[in-house]
Amino acid sequence: MRRPLSTVLLLAGCALGYRGEAELLGEHDLRDTTELRVELPDTPLSVEACAADLPETCPATLSYDGVWLSVAGSRADAREQAAAPVLRFERSEGFAILRAEVPLSVQGLVDLEMGELRLPDDRHLDLRTGVGDVSVRGTEASVVVDVEVGDVLIRGADAGLAVRTGQGDIDVRTPGHAELRTSSGNVEVVQTGDARDLLVHTEQGTIVVTLASDADVDLQIDTRGRITVRTPAITTITSGHFERVNGSGSARVRLVSPRGDIEVRSVDPG
């Protein structure tokens, strides 16, 4: 039985070779840098921010680790190819960028798996990758995330947050303004500070929002699914379109999910 099966698989096609890997470590100076963009090929990205006002425990640097994985036709090639790509850090005035430089000779033959990125919490962050989950914890500055496929988890981003993921869930706890978009995925947002603007759009998925306050809110919800609002000042269960303005409506909340349920709660259950 094995022989016919292996023959069929052989005829159907296969390629034979070896795998290799090379570790990477990096540390770059972030003094005079206010904004950092991390633009990497498919890889999970995990950012842990430390308190910038404690320089003895939180140096003004970006540090990270990770590993380059490779495939090759020989063991020696596998080792050599894993070591070929590099992460390049460039600076221009207050802006810095970390990106991968993959020589053409190993394009398609290497894959990056980043470990944790560590930096002070007052640097604005712009994270971009292809396929990879993104997680940011502790950042007080603004955060922008753009990912093709992957879940996004944000804790912090006090100065504002923008997230776009082609496919993946979004889980956010932030005191800042937030604009969150996913083509397919569920979104959960908790406003942890004062009432702020919030825009959430998912093409396919549910939205669960916990508002900091409903006292001064301009709320608009659109979905063909179910709308459930339970806050001290608003209680409704409906579908289609719902809008309500409380107070002067200074905190604008727009929630759109054409094919999912939307639920709105409040930190203060009333």
């Binding site: 036709g73 394009q107 398609g108």
Partner: peptide
């Protein structure tokens, strides 16, 4: 069915895929 071996550098396919040199390849 055919058997091939890329020499000198990787064999490129569409969409950024590549098979490394010296990787014996059975194709249908």
């Amino acid at each position: 069915p055919r058997v091939s071996v890329p020499l000198s550098s990787a064999r490129r396919f569409g969409g950024g895929r590549a098979l490394p040199r010296y990787a014996t390849t059975f194709e249908l």
